[in-house]
Amino acid sequence: MITVNNKHKLDWYEGMTVQDVLDKMDYVLPLITVSVNEQLVQGVDYSTYEVPDNAQVNVFHLAHGG
């Protein structure tokens, strides 16, 4: 089980990447900052960075538009 933004629980599985988490959460905004256990993950690594079990994943959306 992993926790997203200190709130949402997701079932964890072997090989789960940051991109998988974003897809599961339907997080599609391009302006996000992601950290896994307080470690920042760069955009180019989303599809390869593996999220460990029990991880705290933080996906921070920046507001824009207006």
Partner: peptide, 11 residues
């Protein structure tokens, strides 16, 4: 409208 993601989405 700039705070829209701050609560529910970003927590």
């Amino acid at each position: 409208a700039l705070l829209i993601f701050f609560d529910a989405i970003n927590n």
